[in-house]
Design a protein around this nucleic acid. Structure first.
Lengths: 332, 332
DNA sequence: TTGTAAGCGTTATCAG
DNA sequence: CTGATAACGCTTACAA
């Protein structure tokens, strides 16, 4: 492997000159430039970025920490972040924590050890204290799911309002017995969506039945099982709000199994507007998060922090929308 | 930010000694070790990996180049690769090419510039010549989708046999008019699966109707449209083999729209055994690739190459299986 | 316009 | 067991 030294030797100039040519500085004679470029080509030389990065003390690399990649919500947002990141000359590194605290902390170490310039954190498991500590010294922001009361920039939606809107929509359709299927893990978003659910019922003077609030492990499968139990109750709910589309699919499957019709006998609302909500039969009424905007802002914010880690923290709340499809009756 | 020098100063030893302690070399007096570790703690010191990497000329980082992340097949395999990679003390970097040749080449540059130690390439778009060139000097292997006749290690399944098996299964169910919905882009896998399809028909003395071979852009949506057209023909096929699960979903949607019953009026076989094939209603008969094994072997192979790029290339073919579900009639 | 040389933060060699 | 110092490959004052 050839180095800048080899190029310099072959071109009969100093390494400084080679460096100048490579970095497009304009104070090099055209003739010299040509000589250098010829040598570069001849040796098939590519600069060692490790060395350059060490010198500059940056990596031009941003890490996105995801809890999982199987959820379409995350895979889509990645695509959106990606399109911004490349424009800025950065590389994207994606890692999966699987909600494992230890793993997450290990990845955050990459920040300290200068392997990445900044981190966009989805669904943090790290402690508030540790996060604050890191954020003080290194560029790190939170996106979508987040820890409250930290000194970081946060990009998210108003999950409480989203929960409220979904529930309110069901109420307006005439439902009084509405279940919510949510996560047993203390995700901020899940907690807030449940809050919104409660608030909507309260505001409509519908008594909250704690048996209608069901916590699962967030998967399609267990949602299906829980829905089956739900339907076998004496007074089964006439509408179900699930906090993810894949959960909605599970609920739908259970309902169909009992020979009931979704969008007629029972209404379902999902969350995230992922592709499966469109593919599903019937397709699913769901809350859509502005993923592109979210990804874009996350990238912009992290770059801002990389540029100056003391730049003021922002709390950005983006607008969600309710996408009405056929898993809810359409007689509004 | 403190450096090894600061630690040395505080601990009143040389940087060499600090380095020794940090790298767990055993030729350091216990007393000295303690002093150093105390200083490390006091300064909250973390070694700069850029410097270490420059010195070692490695990054402990493997890049996985994916065409897309929205396909469950890829997101699952990533999870599997991840579990291996961490055990070996490597970090995983994931990038999405969106089948863009330029992007792919840009990412492969990371290899030359020493930003990553090796690349696992899915669905290469680069030219054979370039790939061979790079593989000669840098650790790069192909997984799943691949360019033929290159000097790289390849981990894949026998796509031709898979196409054969799927088609043969439909034939055995009694079908004679079988369509295949495949990709218009020249993916190796798509081509081979079609070959298998043709072979199965031929072997069963069923005349191949070129109108039954339909190329689409691989998406759920266009598959739905093409299936609709297919069904409106004079002599519509009684079975459809789609080369991906999401395409199968599109086909199913079109069939349902016409009031026909999947698994009774028309049979469908998908590919990949992704979660949507289980979620779908009816769930989908599909070809399953051994993703875990694939991810595991890919990681092992790339590490082998990183260790010694002249290690012999392997062509590893893994076994696929046909998973029978309800999108095909069960009277075999 | 170009060259010299210091420096980025490590690790490794060699001497003591 | 420990310390000095060269080296990894690059960028960047500063000098010429």
């Amino acid at each position: 492997m050839s180095t800048i030294k080899d190029v310099a030797q072959l071109a009969n100039v100093s390494v400084a000159t080679v460096s100048r040519v490579l970095n497009n500085e304009n104070n090099v004679k055209e003739k010299t430039k040509e000589k250098v470029l010829k040598a570069v080509k001849e040796l098939n030389y590519t600069p060692n970025l490790l060395a350059r990065n060490l010198r500059h003390s940056n990596t031009k690399c941003v890490l996105v920490l995801l809890p999982t990649i199987s959820n379409q919500f995350y895979s889509t947002i990645i695509k959106d972040i990606n399109s911004v990141v490349e424009k800025e000359g950065y590389n994207l590194m994606i890692s999966i924590t699987e909600l494992d605290k230890k793993k997450e902390e290990a990845y955050i170490e990459l920040l300290k050890t200068k392997r990445v310039d900044g981190i966009i954190l989805f669904a943090p498991q790290i402690s508030k204290k540790k996060l604050n500590n890191i954020a003080q010294n290194y560029p790190i922001i939170q996106c979508s799911e987040y820890l409250e009361n930290t000194n970081t920039t946060i990009i998210t939606i108003d999950n409480k309002k989203a929960g409220f809107d979904a529930t309110k929509y069901l109420i307006n359709l005439g439902h009084k017995n509405i279940a919510i299927l949510t996560s047993e893990k203390p995700y901020t978003s899940a907690i807030l969506r449940e809050k919104g659910y409660r608030e909507a019922l309260k505001k409509s003077k519908i008594k909250i039945d704690e048996n209608n609030i069901i916590k699962t492990d967030y998967t399609y499968k267990s949602t299906m099982e829980e829905t089956e139990k739900l339907l076998n109750r004496e007074n089964p709910p006439t509408a179900i709000f699930t906090i993810s589309d894949s959960m909605a699919i599970g609920a739908i499957k259970a309902i169909k199994k009992q020979g009931k019709i979704v969008g007629k006998d029972i209404d379902i609302i999902g969350f995230d507007d992922t592709i499966i909500s469109k593919i599903s039969d019937p397709d699913i009424t769901t809350i859509s998060q502005p993923r592109f905007k979210m990804g874009e802002l996350a990238m912009k914010s992290i770059l801002e922090k990389i540029n100056d880690n003391n730049s003021p923290n922002k709390f950005i709340t983006l607008e969600h929308t309710l996408v009405v499809r056929n898993s809810t009756r359409l007689n509004l």
